[in-house]
């Protein structure tokens, strides 16, 4: 134990990475922190606007809507509160898991394994985006838009579409990048390079997207 402590301190002496990590990985981490603060800016705005409106009261359309009443439909069913969004959450969690598997296979330079798990991750991401698109279409049909909605306070729609939209944009970009990674993997780009660190970096981004969803889910669907 003592040697590890000693070594950890010595890592800061220059000529080495004190975190024992490549610069690319550090950059992704700190970029994710900055993206966290962007989402945080949006989410605390949501917090401020929501607490400045009366909390949910039955029949009062100036009060904040109850998510169990708003989000109760899915493709082919109604009156099942939160079911569809739970499915979406599971999809994203599982796609995060498949991404970890891809990274793990990358550590053992298993090109086929990486490709396989990337495919599952991309599918998971696509299902999520398409589900999000379905939900948006459904809510817009019900009369929810950026200015008003039939469920309660008018700010609800704007905040919901803005924040889930911003998140969905991140997921879509992630799916595109993962697709690019899959193609590069198949072409042997990383195999020739000698490591699959790019998959790891994309993995960090993908888990970040999952993490943000945990808080978006909390903010709009649970609280």
């Amino acid at each position: 134990m003592e040697t590890t402590v000693q070594n950890a301190k010595e890592l800061w002496n220059g000529g080495d990475s004190p975190f024992k990590v490549s610069y690319g990985k550090i950059m992704i981490w700190y970029f994710l922190i900055s993206d966290t603060f962007t989402f945080a800016g949006l989410l605390i705005s949501y917090g401020a606007v929501r607490t400045s409106q009366p909390s949910h009261k039955e029949g009062d359309l100036t009060s904040w809507p109850d998510p169990n009443e708003v989000f109760s439909a899915g493709p082919g069913f109604h009156h099942a509160p939160l079911v569809f969004v739970t499915f979406m959450t599971f999809t994203l969690i599982v796609s995060s898991v498949t991404m970890v598997r891809a990274v793990q296979e990358g550590h053992y330079m298993n090109k086929a394994g990486v490709a396989k798990w990337l495919v599952w991750t991309i599918i998971g991401g696509l299902i999520f985006v398409l589900s999000q698109a379905w939900e948006w279409t459904h809510l817009i049909h019900e009369g929810m838009n950026l200015k008003s909605n039939p469920f309660g306070a008018s700010s609800f729609g704007a905040l919901f579409f803005l924040i889930t939209g911003f998140h969905g944009l991140h997921v879509s970009v992630g799916v595109l990048m993962n697709t690019w990674a899959l193609i590069s993997t198949q072409r042997g780009v990383f195999h020739r390079r000698g490591h699959y660190e790019m998959i790891e970096k994309l993995g960090l981004y993908w888990h970040f997207v999952d993490l943000v969803w945990v808080y978006v889910f909390l903010a709009f669907y649970l609280l």
Binding site: W12, N13, G14, G15, S17, P18, F19, V21, S22, Y23, I26, M27, Y30, F31, S34
Partner: peptide
């Protein structure tokens, strides 16, 4: 820019250049 500056100071100091 910021990501670059931080990463360079952390990872790319020469031998002996302690913080």
């Amino acid at each position: 820019g910021g990501l670059n500056y931080v990463t360079t100071v952390i990872n790319m100091r020469t031998k002996g250049m302690k913080m």
